[in-house]
Amino acid sequence: MLEIKDLRVNLEDENKEILKGVDLSVEAGKVHAIMGPNGSGKSTLSYVLSGKDGYEVVGGSVKLDGLDILEMEPEERAAAGLFLAFQYPVEIPGVGNMTFLRTAVNSQRKARGEDEISATDFLKQVRERAKSLQIDAEMLKRPVNVGFSGGEKKRNEILQMAMLEPRMCILDETDSGLDVDAMKLVAEGVNALRDAGRGFLVITHYQRLLDHIKPDVVHIMANGKIVKTGGPELALEVENNGYSEILSEVA
């Protein structure tokens, strides 16, 4: 479903290569995890996939269901089914969470040539999905992420994911800043969305999130490349031995 081939990316302002030929395929229905030390290029990969400014793709390709997404604007990628759960969700004063969610859902529907969701259906869906993430009515009314705790922000990301029903979900360090209970809640939200038609790419520094979101495939990323790929046991290896052993092994 998501096919990344030999992706090479520079920081736009400096001639510095961050991604040095990333190869990765995520199949529908599977959860892939990317682990790696700080500065290995994990977050850059998530930003490049979602279309953030400031990066220059100098080589390779990224296809979502066969479509070249690197040519698309961020909103077109979203409508095509790509979703990034941000490591640091942005606070937007003055824009109500509900208004934001509804505009997003309807913008995507419009882009796909579908009818807008009715106000009652939308409300019903939001309430239902918010409830399972323990997001109360008050949080829905507030401006997007403003005054939210770290855990609330991450749950709000998962709520957006649940409402937008993307084909391909990328979770960028979703566990950062979460305590064990909050992490469990977020993981449950993600697990509820797992199905045969949807792919996940879970980027994380630690193994602990993967205790809750069980991956099918684990990749280790270092220095802008995928250096090792394996099953869930690879995450445990990282947990027990750290990255240095694996990295010296592949060097």
Partner: peptide, 11 residues
Amino acid sequence: ALFYLCSRGIS
């Protein structure tokens, strides 16, 4: 904020 909104499908 602009990128965040766009990444959710808003033009």
